[in-house]
């Protein structure tokens, strides 16, 4: 319960951002942190809590993004309906990938590779068919208005992504405090033992991948409405898949606040390098990759793990300046 109160308090404070931050640039930064936290939390459900490392979360993100874009541009369907459709289709894609992998018992590296392959298949398909605009991409016409899920100012977008992200965090809080979450953790830690105790591992993993897919899909819907442009590389390319897993790995996998910490740290670092080195193509990704290596080598439990460790160190022996 204390965790829930803390969670709501943190999000309430974040909700003040549009009222205290005057510059569009800074508010955009807050929006991007929330968006990254949403992507990361989605991955965290399946990867952190479920122990299934997906390398292809772009499959759900891109499906959400393309659904809302294609429905608007090709069929003139309202993006609010597109939002629901995008979420549902992302769940559908996740269910399909889950069936294709968990049904056949794929785990670990195999699961990672198959999810990557699925995202690649979708990228190639979206690059080859006409209704997605193929390689040229798809441009959503600018039409500000709440009815069109587009906003005049960044504040509207802020509350859109804030709502999605809060929903994802509440879902993860629920996972941490429910029977479903306990089963999921049991499957992550030892699938055979969990099965022996009567946990239906397949169903639990399916639940996790579909929930994970939903939030990735919502992140995709937000991306499409915010940037109003998509192409196959943005939607289904490896960058989104990498960002999705990097955020919780930096913040702390399998923890509620890990993705928020990770998202903030990632953006802080990448803004800092932009300040110091300037706008250089690829340099932020070099940093992401290096961070990934360093985190896995030295801090496999992320920033949240580091915090816990320091805290735990300090308690038994006050005054001890032990190194991590």
């Amino acid at each position: 319960m204390r965790q829930l109160v803390l969670l709501l308090a943190v999000f309430a404070v974040i909700a003040l951002a549009p009222f205290v931050i005057a510059s569009e640039f800074s508010l955009n930064l807050v929006i991007m942190v929330l968006y990254a936290a949403l992507l990361g939390q989605a991955w965290n459900i399946l990867g952190g809590y479920g122990g299934q490392f997906s390398f292809g979360h772009a499959a759900y993100f891109g499906t959400g993004a393309y659904t809302v874009a294609v429905l608007q541009v090709q069929l003139g369907i309202n993006p609010w309906i597109g939002l629901v459709a995008g979420g549902l289709l992302a769940i559908g894609v996740a269910a399909f990938i889950g069936l294709a992998t968990f049904r056949y018992g794929l785990r670990g590296s195999y699961f990672a590779l198959v999810t990557l392959a699925f995202a690649e298949v979708l990228r190639i398909l979206s690059n080859s068919v006409d209704f997605t605009g193929a390689g040229v991409g798809i441009l959503i016409p600018l039409a500000p208005g709440v009815a069109n899920l587009q906003f005049e100012t960044k504040t509207g977008y802020f509350f859109l992504v804030w709502t999605f992200t809060l929903a994802a965090f509440l879902a993860v809080w629920w996972i941490g405090h429910s029977r479903f979450g306990a089963s999921l953790a049991a499957v992550r830690d030892n699938e055979e033992a969990a099965r022996a105790l009567g946990v239906n591992a397949f169903r639990v993993k399916m639940g996790a991948i579909m929930l994970s897919g939903l939030f990735s899909g919502l992140a995709g819907v937000f991306y499409a409405q915010y940037f109003l442009y998509l192409d196959p590389y943005i939607a289904y390319g490896p960058a989104i898949s990498v960002e999705s897993l990097l955020v919780p790995i930096i913040g702390g996998m399998g923890t509620l606040f890990g993705p928020l910490l990770g998202a903030a740290a990632l953006h802080a670092v990448s803004e800092l390098t932009r300040e110091i080195i300037g706008e250089v193509p690829g340099i932020s990704l070099v940093l992401y990759g290096a961070l990934l290596v360093v985190m896995v080598m030295f801090l496999p439990r992320g920033l949240a793990g580091l915090g816990e460790r320091l805290f735990a160190r300090r308690r038994p022996k006050a005054g001890e300046t032990g190194h991590a």
Binding site: G108, G289, V293
Partner: peptide
């Protein structure tokens, strides 16, 4: 953990590729 190796080699590939891009 095997997953860690997967992640480290993924990180290495991102670093190498983007350094080359740079």
């Amino acid at each position: 953990r095997d997953e860690n190796i997967l992640l480290v080699t993924l990180g290495l590939s991102i670093v190498i590729e983007n350094l080359a891009l740079f």
